[in-house]
């Protein structure tokens, strides 16, 4: 390996290390799972250990969207818009059975899984999953970010979206 490849490899490690240890979520609690997400950011479970306690209300300042709760067809356009407003690099955790696959609600107004709308990186099943489940999901995401190649991050394009 030449000196440039070694430099790129360590640069990749450093950048990924910085990204994974300061993932800032956008507040996207929809239903019951939102309560467990709030608890995960409180003292007993403490998401701040992972650098993720800064829940930003504005998607422009966030890099992670934790979809916690049921996504309905009426809410879906909002979810897509918030996802598109987040700058790259961005990740999505589907927290809870409803976000993973529609959950127990196989009805006329529920989207059967948020992956029908946005690409999902980590799925955390449960109804609701314990707050430790969210922390485990976050750790899996951190492991995934650590593996990312620099400069060639796969951007999944949504129809009509402006990739840039």
């Amino acid at each position: 390996m030449g000196i440039e490849d070694k430099a790129m490899a360590s640069l990749q490690e450093v950048i990924n290390w910085a990204r994974k240890n300061s993932v800032w979520p956008v507040t996207f609690g929809l239903a019951c799972c939102a309560l467990e997400m709030m608890v995960a950011s409180s003292a007993t479970y403490d998401i701040a250990r992972f650098g993720a306690e800064v829940f930003r209300p504005s998607p422009r300042q966030a890099d992670l969207m934790i979809v916690a709760g049921t996504v309905t067809k009426k809410m879906a356009p909002m979810l897509k818009r918030i996802y598109e407003q987040m700058p790259e690099p961005k990740w999505v955790i589907a927290y809870g059975a409803c976000a993973c696959s529609g959950g127990i609600f196989r009805t006329y107004n529920v989207v059967q899984g948020v992956d029908q709308i946005v690409p999902v990186d980590v799925y955390v099943p449960g109804c609701p999953p314990r707050p430790e489940g969210l922390l485990k999901g976050l750790m899996e995401l951190q492991a995934k970010i650590a593996r990312e190649p620099l400069g060639m991050r796969k951007i999944v394009s949504l129809p009509g979206e402006n990739n840039g």
Partner: peptide, 10 residues
């Protein structure tokens, strides 16, 4: 209505 899951119908 952004969380209308159809519980009564279900």
């Amino acid at each position: 209505g952004y969380l209308h899951r159809g519980v009564e119908k279900l």
